[in-house]
Design a protein around this nucleic acid. Structure first.
Lengths: 206, 206
DNA sequence: TTCGTACGTTACCGGTCAGTCACGTTTCGC
DNA sequence: GCGAAACGTGACTGACCGGTAACGTACGAA
């Protein structure tokens, strides 16, 4: 009753609003992904996410049971994206594990050294989420365990002297690249990750 | 007037209370150090810190201008401690840069693989602190820049083929070790950091 | 003894947090 | 055209956030 309510042409969508017809849940997911990554999980409230997505808190809670649930979903999506890029990169050098790893590290440097990169979303979540029963924790753990498995496998296919040692070393390099991007910026040590990876591979494959 | 106030024998100090005579500021610093590191900076409020330190919020604000100030002070202290351990370790192998780096990585693995380790306090802060003007940010940046400088210098003293490349690679390894400890635990890739560092050094010193 | 400093206590401020209720409106498949 | 699902809105809860005001007390140095 209060307001006349100017029917449909709701000029909402605070930011860019690519597609105003998308489902609320999708808009929230995209907004949350952006906000969680850039500002941090704890730093962003559900109210902010809802408003920035052009909706409100009540509609938020119709799509997600809780903020923790959204966080877990956000991490699962980041994981899917990560493996998608990984597999895509690896597929370009099928049968050549060494070239695969080199390409993966090239991709890592490229993605870690963009203007708006803030490191690995999953690793950052591991820093922020300290509560014992948080649904996002197992997502991070499984992701990183799978990454280690893949590096071990790749090192094995390369016939490295000590596959697990090389795999672990590459993983340390990988993780370090993201955090170095965070602390020392684009021009920092992160730039040399691919170079270091090649040196490491050479050192471990006689 | 309200309560009779049972004079001095205040049986406070919730936790262990090592020395009840220490200054409030010191108690707060120690409590904050523990809490910030274990639970995260954003996850811990000043009220919690004050109570856990056996005092209250008002006394907290008599020692610190703001929470952000305490955070910055916490980071400065962590930095001092880090360089203390670094210098101590390096001093044991003065004149032998290679042995120094190896000893530093041994120390890293030891400290990163304790039960209660939660990675690098400064790097974690870089993840949590996203506000532009936060007084803790420059502390982290300067610390990591100095660490990079030291690795470059060490690599130079080792007469590496490409000192900056080796220094950066070692730094990536260093940072990766801490985050790997966080995500994959004590038995994860972090264990092999010292081994990987040796391989990297060998690869870069002809 | 006096005086300043350090500290404890209670109550409060405005704001934000996650989460909910009740009700009205739009949109879409059938 | 109709019903149901999807969505918008405003008001609300209780807890917590960082930070402050006012007042009272313990204690050490002079």
């Amino acid at each position: 009753m209060a307001r006349p309510k100017r029917s449909q042409d709701s000029e909402k969508s605070e930011i860019i609003s690519i597609a105003p017809k998308t489902r609320v849940r999708d808009r929230i997911m995209r907004t949350a992904t952006e906000l969680f990554y850039q500002r941090g999980i704890r730093a962003v409230g559900v109210d902010t996410i809802a408003n920035e997505a052009g909706t409100n808190k009540m509609s938020f809670y119709r799509s997600f049971a809780s903020k923790d649930d959204l966080v877990a979903e956000y991490l699962r999506e980041e994981e899917r994206d990560a493996w998608l890029h990984w597999d895509e990169t690896a597929a370009a050098h099928a049968g050549d594990p060494r070239a695969q790893v080199e390409a993966l590290f090239d991709m890592l440097v490229t993605s870690a050294c963009t203007d708006d990169s803030r490191g690995c979303a999953l690793a950052n979540a591991a820093v922020e989420i300290t509560e014992a029963g948080h649904p996002g924790r197992p997502v991070v753990e499984k992701y990183k365990a799978e990454m280690r498995r893949r590096f071990h496998a790749l090192a094995g296919e390369m016939h490295a002297r000590d596959p697990d040692a090389l795999g672990d070393a590459l993983m340390l390099l990988w993780e370090g690249t993201y955090v170095a991007r965070l602390t020392l910026g684009r021009e920092g040590p992160a730039q040399g990750a691919a170079h270091a990876a090649r040196a490491l591979i050479a050192a471990y494959t006689s």
